[in-house]
Design a protein around this nucleic acid. Structure first.
Lengths: 149, 149
DNA sequence: CTCCATGCAAACACTTTGCAATCCG
DNA sequence: CGGATTGCAAAGTGTTTGCATGGAG
């Protein structure tokens, strides 16, 4: 895996550095957690105490440009990142709990029909989409039900 | 309309002020433009030069809380606002052009089926959703086609 | 007259940038 | 070695906050 990453960097003409490896590792290890830049910074600092914030930000931008990770904005003031598993079509949606703020991913993609409609009616060529569902997760629903008794 | 707004404020226990009126007016007049906070500030300043940024931010937050406007984040570093036309269900999606950055709205909502699935499979109670389609608008598609000749 | 609301400027929080030192290849 | 990359701190951005003044009810 380390080798792969090294390889990818070289192919794109970038140098391999320990810092980049660690940033990538942290995001990989926390797949699905959507860590924000600062959390990633903290995590990397555990393994590599001398890393600077700037490097983390620069690396995250780099990895995003290379298509290895993607950034999302959940309107909480942070930019959050996660791995791109399938570079061709990261077709998944996010379920954001309004109570606890947890974020889970849903894999299904049923937007094909909608995209076709948009293509037809609005002459807009859809390349990608990002869907966020706001609501209440299982845990919070149960908590809320209990409290209501 | 001015009267209405005055009324709404009072009902919620807020005071009517010229500044609030102007902020609301600007957002209303620019329906569909998704102005960001600074743009709104500039617009209001044309009519009311003494307004401060803080007031605009505070008012936008207030109006959003009251459900009169809604804020969206298009990952461009700004929080953007637009009017809520139908308070019950602002079921519309955004088409964001990757070329020119234009944003148009689509009214259709075909997410019912998807939400049902999510409810079933993830035990997540969907309350609202936000969908963004990224792609190329009609104008840019044509431009790009022309340049490719 | 009593607070709520405002304007100003300072404070914030996250991110970016400039630059000399450092490391990869 | 030579240029890409880093760390640091300073500078940027958009937004929020503290506080005295001002205006709505």
């Amino acid at each position: 895996m380390a080798k792969d990453f090294n390889q990818i960097l070289k192919e794109k003409g970038y140098k391999f550095t320990t810092q980049r490896q660690y940033v990538f590792d942290v995001v990989t290890e926390n797949q699905g957690s959507h860590l924000n830049s600062q959390e990633i910074f903290e995590c990397v600092r555990n393994k590599y105490p001398d890393i600077g914030v700037a490097t983390v930000y620069r690396t995250l931008g780099l990895l995003e440009d290379m298509g290895l990770i993607y950034g999302v904005d959940f309107n909480d003031g942070y930019r959050r990142y996660d791995i791109v598993k399938d570079p061709e079509a990261h077709r998944h949606h996010h379920l954001i709990c309004l109570e606890c703020g947890s974020i889970q991913e849903v894999e299904e993609d049923l937007l094909g029909a909608i995209e076709e409609n948009i293509q037809k009616n609005n002459k807009f060529k859809v390349v990608n989409h990002r869907v966020k569902f706001y609501g209440y997760c299982d845990v919070c629903q149960k908590k809320m039900d209990t409290n209501r008794l």
